[in-house]
Design a protein around this nucleic acid. Structure first.
Length: 289
DNA sequence: ACAGGCTCCTGCAGGC
DNA sequence: TGCCTGCAGGAGCCTG
């Protein structure tokens, strides 16, 4: 399940392969509603545009697109800033649980559950594959709507004060709060568990009851684990692969996630599993208080 | 306003 | 061997 590190890895990989390329043709499979923008409208909006940059916001992949027509936007001398600078449109991809965004050669075998194929000027294709269809695709014309900013704060850059403020007065479990994308954007089930373990905090503690010192441990632990995971190319637990179809390696560094019953790597106490906010949650009853 | 639960969807594992 | 059930979960929606 792609979370911040996996999405970051994919966005970087896609950016490296398609930046400056033009979308010649867009094809969308006719499925019920894996789309936030109707498929026909997306295809119409995408065709002819140059991909200026691809980056991550929370768990979303944002493709910044130039205008239709002239190649002025590619040929510009000043480099494009991360937010897309003079982009005129955006294609926003959320991978859900099982989504993949792949850059392939045109003759590459079309995987089952391929819902979108963007044919690029270079001849390559950008493909969206999503068996479980929890993913979402959205097109935004920036002349008509605001650029995508994401729902919550970025865990890699948020400061201590702002982080603490997110949880103040909240009665829900800290684990549930971490999964709430309108607070922090990008943390999912794996990194919530791993961050809480590294911070030594029990997932069921009420968010608003954590001390300032505990919250600061959590903020730093999350940042550390997310950065390490990005270094490793993400975690491949089910079917996650990057833009090239390669698996990540951070699953080898998981200390609690999906280690129910196994010895804690710090104290050898068996790792416990409980359900919080409908999600399996793994923790060490000895190390986490 | 907030919190918790249900729902979508498919693939896979486990049990009989 | 083959079928069935249950489980995995991000996020939107509904309810209390």
């Amino acid at each position: 399940m792609p979370e911040l590190p996996e999405v970051e890895t994919i966005a970087r990989g896609v950016d490296a392969r398609v930046r400056g390329d033009r979308i010649v043709e867009a094809w969308f499979g006719l499925h019920r509603e894996p789309f936030k923008t109707p498929p026909a409208q997306q295809a119409k909006g995408l065709e002819g545009r140059v991909i200026l940059a691809v980056h991550r916001t929370g768990k979303h992949i944002v493709c910044e697109l130039g205008g239709i027509g002239g190649i002025g936007s590619v040929a510009r001398s000043s480099p494009l800033d991360e937010s897309g600078g003079s982009a005129e449109a955006q294609w926003i991809v959320h991978l859900g649980m099982t989504g993949r965004l792949l850059v392939t050669t045109p003759d590459g075998l079309v995987a089952r559950h391929t819902h979108a194929r963007l044919t690029l000027g270079s001849g390559r294709e950008l493909r969206f594959v999503d068996p479980r269809r929890f993913g979402r695709l959205e097109f935004r014309d920036l002349g008509r709507s605001m650029g995508f900013t994401g729902p919550g704060k970025e865990p890699l850059s948020i400061g201590a004060e702002e982080f603490a403020a997110l949880f103040r007065g909240r009665r829900l479990a800290i684990k549930a709060a971490l999964l709430n994308q309108t607070l922090l954007a990008g943390v999912g089930n794996i990194y919530a568990d791993e961050g809480l373990f590294r911070a030594g905090l029990r997932p069921l503690r009420r968010a608003g009851r954590l001390t300032r010192a505990e919250l600061e441990r959590l903020r730093l632990a999350l940042r550390e684990v997310l950065e390490q995971a990005i270094q490793s190319g993400g975690s491949s637990v089910s079917d996650y692969v990057d833009a090239e179809g390669m698996r990540g390696f951070f699953q080898l560094e998981h200390r609690v996630y999906q280690r129910t019953g196994q010895a804690c790597l710090s104290c050898e106490t068996p790792i416990r599993r409980v359900v919080v906010a409908g999600r399996s949650t793994h923790y060490c009853p000895q190390c986490q208080r």
